[in-house]
Structure formats: C-alpha cells, structure tokens
Amino acid sequence: MENKLMVKLVVGTEAMFFLALIMAYIYFSLLPGFTSRQADHLDIRSTAIFSAFLFSSSFTFWRAETNFKKGKMTRLKGWLLLTLALGLVFLVGQGTEYARLLKENVSISSSLFGTSFFTLTGFHGLHVLVGLVVISIVTTLTFMGDYDRSSSSVFGTVGIYWHFVDIVWLFVFSIVYVLPHLHKITT
C-alpha cells in the first residue's frame, strides 16, 4: 500500500512539472509566427502512428499486471516483453522525428518553436526512457523467478508510472500536434 501511495505522490508532483512545461509551450504558441512553424515542420501522421504504439503499451502492461495477479507467469513474461518492444518503437519513432527536424534546421536553439518543442517532447521522452529501464529491470527479475509469489506490489507501482507517462503523451500530442492541425484544416 505505501509503495503505491509513494508512486502516486511522485506521479502527482511530476504532473505539476509537466503542467509547467505545457503552460510555457502554450504561452509561447500564442506568439505570432509560432503556429505556422509548428504546422510546417510537424508530420502528424507519422507521429500518430508511433504514438499508437505507446498507447497500446499501456494496454499490454495492464495485461501483464492482471496475469501476474492470476499467477500466470508465462503470459506475464510475454506481455512484459511486448510492452518493452512497443515502448522502444515509440522512442525510435521520436528519434527519427528529431533527426528529420534537425536536418530541416529546426533545433532547440533555432527558434522559440524549437526551444519549446524539444524541451516538452524531450522531457517526455526521458520519462519514457526511465520507464523502459525500470520495466526491463522488472522483466529481468521476472525471468530470474523473483516474483513467483503474487504478493509483490512492483507491477502495480510501475504500472501507475507507466500509465502516467502515457496520459502525459495524450496531452502533449493533442496540444503540440492535433490542435494546430485542426486549426490548419479549419482555416
């Protein structure tokens, strides 16, 4: 119980951190010239695809959790590996997007758009990376047979963090990609 409460508190304070970054992003996006740059350089379609991988990794981790509770260890391992793979695809997707932007001379120092875009998505990507490191440790321990009894709270606590990272991306994706896209369509 206390482990879950601890992670909930950590996630709460992290949410405040992302709120500050998102508010800064919105604040700058209201300045002239920002939205046009945003629309020019971002490709909502490819990002939507690798976002789907991240969102489905939340589902697979949830499956892992329920199988752990039922004591089905083989299935647990399968779902964990799938979660890792999905998260990894997301990071690779984000990496290719960064590479393309840098090639187009959009960087953290190139413009206000670059500054706020790379900071916001970069901090989120960092959280995905931390999550993947944690999940791969948990997966290794699972394969070593450390969680054979279903009393451990580790899947519940890691799950809270992993779902949180997903929800943050839901907000970031909507604000950075979807809203300007809708704006572009309507005007």
Partner: peptide
C-alpha cells in the same frame, strides 16, 4: 542556447 527567457530570441 534555447530561448525561453531571452527576449532577443523571442522568449
């Protein structure tokens, strides 16, 4: 060299 707080860079 990000531009959050520098007015010269639009921040």
């Amino acid at each position: 060299h990000a531009h959050f707080f520098s007015a010269a860079g639009g921040g």
